[in-house]
Design a protein around this nucleic acid. Structure first.
Length: 266
DNA sequence: AACATGCCCAACCGCTATAAT
DNA sequence: TATTATAGCGGTTGGGCATGT
């Protein structure tokens, strides 16, 4: 295998294109077509490598490029296609007339990815982030602890001992959060963990989630993530003694309400 | 006003697939 | 079949700009 990088040649310009260079490139391609990109720069009077010319043309100068903000429809299309195709930017771009793969990739990395993360979705799988599962038993234990305390079934000393344990568990959870867990600490005011969940809708339709990542073209339309399950619910773990928040987390409410799911982790 | 920080996006880099020899 | 040339793709970078302190 041997292909020397096309830009290794000395003296070839790199970096931003000037309007004069753009004009030369446009003029040449309109008159002759691009032909061999390797040969084009010399023929067009440009001190650039062919690859640089090709990128400039396909990503910026092509007459059919659509510029400006992405519409809601385009955003939904990108999200749906990404759920199916992954980071196949050129494939996604082929479904968005006038948009380049580079533009879509940038839009994804700067907007859509963040939006999904903020909503608690894994941007690659488009599903609720699953690293939450590994810490669920601890959360359940903390919630049960709270209920026992409120029911008055625990003695004062035991409460203190267990509260210390809960604080340690919470610290572990927080450490995991720092590593990218979906359970993000927040400064939510003091709250009862289970009471928070009572205000939330029933579990989301699991089929919707399945079809979101599995659906193919021409089949059932994948739902827009914004229409998918409610965002994580903020849950605070509170020290019974002084109502001090040990830690707060954003978690998926429907998971805590799903008996079958809970049974698996109990 | 000056500096720091974060965001955006055009452009580059390095790789793979494919065509040509 | 092996080697080389080219096009195309996805990941990453860095400079300009906006915003915050």
């Amino acid at each position: 295998m041997g292909r020397s990088p096309c830009c290794d040649e000395n003296g070839l310009k790199k970096g931003p294109w000037t309007p004069e260079e753009d004009q030369k490139l446009i003029h040449y391609i309109k008159k002759h077509g691009h032909g061999s990109w390797r040969a084009l720069p010399k023929l067009a009077g440009l001190n650039r490598c062919g690859k640089s010319c090709r990128l400039r043309w396909t990503n910026y100068l092509r007459p059919d490029i659509k510029r400006g903000k992405f519409s809601l429809e385009e955003e939904e299309t990108i999200l749906s296609l990404h759920a199916i195709l992954g980071n196949k930017w050129s494939a996604i771009a082929s479904h968005l007339p006038g948009r380049t793969d580079n533009e879509i990739k940038n839009f994804w990395n700067t907007h859509l990815k963040k939006k999904l993360i903020q909503m608690g979705f894994d941007p690659m799988t488009h599903r609720p982030r699953t690293d939450f599962f590994s810490t669920l038993p601890q959360l359940i234990a903390l919630a049960n602890l709270r209920e026992l305390i409120l029911d008055g079934r625990l003695q004062a000393e035991a409460v203190q001992t267990m509260a210390n344990g809960a604080a340690a568990a919470a610290a572990d959870l927080e450490a995991m959060n720092m590593l990218g867990s979906q359970m993000m600490p927040s400064s939510f005011p003091p709250t009862m963990p289970c009471a928070v969940l009572d205000n939330h809708p029933p579990p989301a339709n699991q089929e919707n989630r399945e079809c979101y990542s599995m659906a193919g073209f021409g089949q059932e339309e994948p739902p827009h993530p914004l229409l998918l399950p409610p965002p994580p619910t903020e849950v605070s773990v509170v020290n019974h003694g002084d109502d001090r928040i040990i830690s707060s987390y954003n978690i998926w409410p429907e998971l805590l309400l799903d008996n079958q799911f809970m049974a698996e982790f109990a």
